[in-house]
């Protein structure tokens, strides 16, 4: 069996004169939960839709489950689960009817009632999809995405508009699916905490480029901004806060008055990274090097 669930090399895509993806490389191992992180407009959705086979006109190499999404057929599609942004389709259908209908497209689907129970939709089973709450609707979308027992699940900003509790429930669900079913999950989000919580690896996409890719800890290291060391008589930004504190101790010959060390959070690092990339890009554009 092919080991990579997704393999992307040098992917480029433009809408007219606007370059949306600028040479993206990406590898997803089977069974991993992978998060694509980036600000709005970074190209996350475009990338995912190319992987799902819904966009053409790109260049580069793309393989999903060993096939080119632009040319793959129904047998390939049956192995994918797709949860797109803000779906509100089939508003007149009852929840159970819709899940059963979608299940019938597959050879070996989940038991519909078991799935509804697992997603906490049993009580809403007779309701029409159009009257569900935001969280219920999203769980229905996930049910429709996984009912065919996919090997790869694409989740495009699945928790946008969730309240904290719905978000937590959703995270538990994804962890369960990845754990029990060995599902490969590609998730996009602009919420760093969500990425950290759910995935083994995170890639950061900014302005159509993959800026960094690795575990949350690696990401933190890669994007580390300096720590701030502050004491009564001054402050300094440094990559080595411990060393600075030691020097200060030496200088004061004892406890440093009002010593405070602030390490940046992962979120600050991430925001900083986005800012830097943007600034670099703008400079390059202004300088006419592109």
């Amino acid at each position: 069996m092919h080991d990579a669930a997704v393999r992307v090399r040098g992917l480029r895509m433009a809408y007219g004169p606007v370059q949306v993806l600028n040479g993206v490389d990406l590898d997803l191992r089977r069974g991993e939960v992978f998060t694509l992180l980036g600000p709005n407009g970074a190209g996350k959705t475009t990338l995912v839709e190319i992987l799902e086979g819904f966009r053409t006109g790109w260049s580069g190499e793309v393989e999903v489950l060993g096939e080119n999404p632009a040319r793959a057929g129904d047998a390939w599609r049956a192995r994918l689960g797709v949860v797109m942004q803000s779906w509100r389709d089939h508003p007149r259908w009852r929840v159970r009817d819709l899940v059963a209908h979608v299940a019938a497209h597959y050879d070996d689907p989940h038991d519909v009632d078991e799935l509804l129970a697992a997603l906490g939709l049993t009580e809403a089973a007779r309701n029409r999809a159009g009257v569900l709450s935001g969280g219920q609707r999203r769980r229905l979308d996930v049910a429709l995405g996984i009912v065919g027992r996919p090997e790869v699940l694409f989740l495009d900003e699945p928790t946008t508009g969730f309240d904290p509790e719905a978000r937590r429930e959703f995270h538990l669900l994804i962890e369960r699916l990845a754990g029990e079913e060995g599902l490969t999950v590609l998730l996009t989000t602009h919420d760093l905490a969500e990425a950290e919580r759910l995935s083994e690896r995170i890639a950061v996409l900014v302005a159509g480029r993959m800026v960094t890719c690795g575990s949350p800890a690696e990401l933190a290291r890669a994007v580390q901004v300096p720590s701030l060391v502050r004491w009564e008589d001054g402050e300094v930004e440094t990559a080595d806060p411990s060393g600075v504190a030691w020097d200060l101790h030496q200088r004061y010959g004892g406890p440093v008055p009002g010593l405070e060390i602030r390490r940046p959070t992962l979120e600050e690092s991430y925001l900083d990274l986005i800012e830097e990339t943007r600034a670099a890009r703008e400079t390059a554009t202004v300088g006419g090097t592109r």
């Binding site: 799902e52 819904f54 129904d74 047998a75 599609r77 049956a78 994918l80 797709v82 797109m84 779906w87 509100r88 389709d89 089939h90 508003p91 979608v102 497209h105 597959y106 429709l144 065919g148």
Partner: peptide
């Protein structure tokens, strides 16, 4: 509403 898009995500949809 996205019903057509849903169909495109299903095999034979």
């Amino acid at each position: 509403e996205g019903t057509l898009m849903r169909a495109r995500t299903l095999p034979g949809g």
